[in-house]
Design a protein around this nucleic acid. Sequence first.
DNA 1: TTTTGAGTTGTTCGA
DNA 2: GTCGAACAACTCAAA
Length: 444
Amino acid sequence: MTAASPTLVWLRDDLRLADNPALVAATERGGPVVLVYLLDEVSRGIRPLGGASRWWLHQSLSALAETAPLVLRRGPAEEVIPALVAETDAGAVFWNRRYGASRTIDAALKQRLRDDGVEATSFHANLLFEPWTVTTAQGEPYRVFTPFWRAALERPVRAPLPVPAVRWGHAASERLDDWALLPTRPDWAAGLRETWMPGEHGAHDRLEAFAERGLADYHRRDEPGVEATSRLSAHLRFGELSPFQVWHAVEGRHANADKFLSELGWREFNAGILFRLPDLATTNVKRQYDAFPWVEPDPTVLDAWRHGRTGIPLVDAGMRELWHTGTMHNRVRMVAASLLVKNLLVHWRIGEQWFWDTLVDADEASNPGNWQWVAGSGLDAAPYFRVFNPVLQAARFDPDGEYVRRWVPESGTPDYPEPIVDLGASRTAALAAYERVKAAVDRR
DNA sequence: TTTTGAGTTGTTCGA
DNA sequence: GTCGAACAACTCAAA
């Protein structure tokens, strides 16, 4: 055997050095390791990132480049990776698997590299359980969350891997600033900068704080005025943390741990849905919802929803939190989504796209999966007749009005607009519209 | 093999 | 004021 050639490690949704199986395997192979990230906005199967995600990506890559020599390239993977292999004389390309439509890119690339005599190997890193490994007794994927998660939890969750002692290889890199991932005119990212610290260090700080202190308050996670959620979703989305690291930091530490870890379960469940339905962001999982009579949204109404001027305080608070910070409290997401989809009868795809553009944690599986959950068209979804009443929700979960006051200080004053929709009448109309879906079931 | 009960996040109505 | 029913339809696991 000759001296080991360089290995390319192609990072995608795994912007971390710790618990990175591809990086560990590359190190064990023996040669220098060239770490590469591609900005691929052209290959089929790639969903272009939204604005908030582009901001996060810039920060995260910037943080990573301070801890390891990172090679940045732009273009379609199927061209750029083989070119980089030739350029660096690499004998192998390793990566951690992804599970959406883009996996067809990976499959084609793997074949091409192997045809060229280059070792190409993918690894299990970014989900606790790969989708094809959790099936019912009949070998079918689960369609109901609880049995899915129960079955998944029967297996062990491997321990996270340490950062290996890497001998880094090098190649020319593009400049991150040239990718223009950050907003300029206008710079709307001030609220994001105040709120987040992207990158592996920031992710671990957040995880540690949550495991040591936040978990004790997690039973109050439904109250948006209380800081009781983990705020780890964006770190997981970009793979600055692996779910294995989160699991082992939290599991068994507190009575609230299982409830929190079931949220990782929903991440896994949605990933499994996307694995089977790569067009999850555009197509109803339950196809009878194709018959639903969505209305063409009035641009004024849509604009009011997007920018937090609906005249419904809890919804406006959430939409303004989103616009300012790139996140929204989980419960408020449901309420804001319910208003758009059910009271306003606007197609869930329109709301999904807005969240895709504005959320720092916008995830290819979880974002459309959760919108379809709210709309009723998803797997194990909320039934259509379950229409949130945002006034009741505010009274129940923000009883002192702390959250609403923080984001909508003019609520209750003459400056605050009247509601853009009558909640009672629109609820009735929504239930009537749902009759179409029921009829579609019968016709099937 | 068949049956039965339970299943992320809710609201309204009428007794 | 409280409480159960109704609002649908279907999947899965346990008995």
